[in-house]
Design a protein around this nucleic acid. Structure first.
Lengths: 143, 143
DNA sequence: GACCATATGTCAGAATTCTGACATGACGCA
DNA sequence: TGCGTCATGTCAGAATTCTGACATATGGTC
């Protein structure tokens, strides 16, 4: 039996970093009246308007049902808007409102500060390598 | 505004990898009748017997209340055991049962295979560096 | 000894997220 | 045209996890 320390595995440390990141983001976003999943949704829409609920769910790694809840709350808060009828198929293309763009931009500054803190001890080259490694790891598991 | 792709951030890719890892672990552990949080609990106990509920919660990055639910299910399944009265203070030191050790050992093999898949494209030296970087990142956020 | 801060286990309730299921619309193919 | 497959939005219900609160036990401090 190898009996290696489970805390010294990539899997465990990934979980640890993600927990710390989530906590940091929740704290920073509370000021803006947003939760982390809500921010993820706004960020995706900021870069790709007209995404459907299902596409947003895949982008944020949650179920369609969960994203639907997020989307309804954002809609109720006036940060996003969806047409009442689908222009094609069943997908409802979602867009940020002007208010949504303002909130996103304000929140993004704080989130980028956290991202900077996250990679504070890495130089740009190391960060680039890390990013590529993470992408490789996700693909290695998916297939 | 930088307007960089949010998907090309360390934070986003961390979330992505962790989602893939969680899915892979859930699938592998289902065969053993375990969930990922339950496995995390067993693994911690396997290396440090007599951990209390609160210590296990911190080790698995969940609340005390959540870990308590996990612990009760494991107790009901006969994989762990706790004294009914605290030997000191209020903490109840938990231990694996013989059955718990058997299940853990069987499950660990599958989880280690996933860990191997995760780091498949990294040589031992790169893995060591990655591990250190992840630990640094968690600390950078915590303080 | 008295008091206060801290840590633990636990109850109660809410929030979040999930799985299962179903109806609907688009598309490919016989 | 008709049919099967797939994706989407949504409803219903359960599972999971969280926050808030409280009683209890320990240890330090006066």
């Amino acid at each position: 039996m190898t009996q290696q320390d489970a805390r010294r595995t990539v899997g465990y440390q990934l979980k640890r970093v993600q927990a710390a990141l989530r906590a940091a983001m929740d704290g920073a976003l509370r000021v803006h009246g947003l939760t982390t999943p809500q921010y993820a949704c706004l960020e995706l829409l900021g870069q790709q308007p007209r995404l459907s609920n299902a596409e947003l769910a895949r982008g944020a790694f949650v179920s369609r049902q969960s994203m639907n809840v997020v989307l309804r709350n954002l809609e109720e808060a006036g940060l996003v808007e969806r047409p009442s009828t689908a222009p094609s198929g069943r997908a409802l293309p979602t867009r940020l409102t002007a208010e949504g763009e303002r909130v996103l931009e304000a929140a993004r500054a704080d989130v980028l500060a956290i991202e900077a803190r996250l990679t504070a001890r890495l130089d740009p080259e190391q960060t680039r390598i890390l990013l590529a490694q993470l992408e490789d790891m996700a693909e290695s598991l998916s297939q």
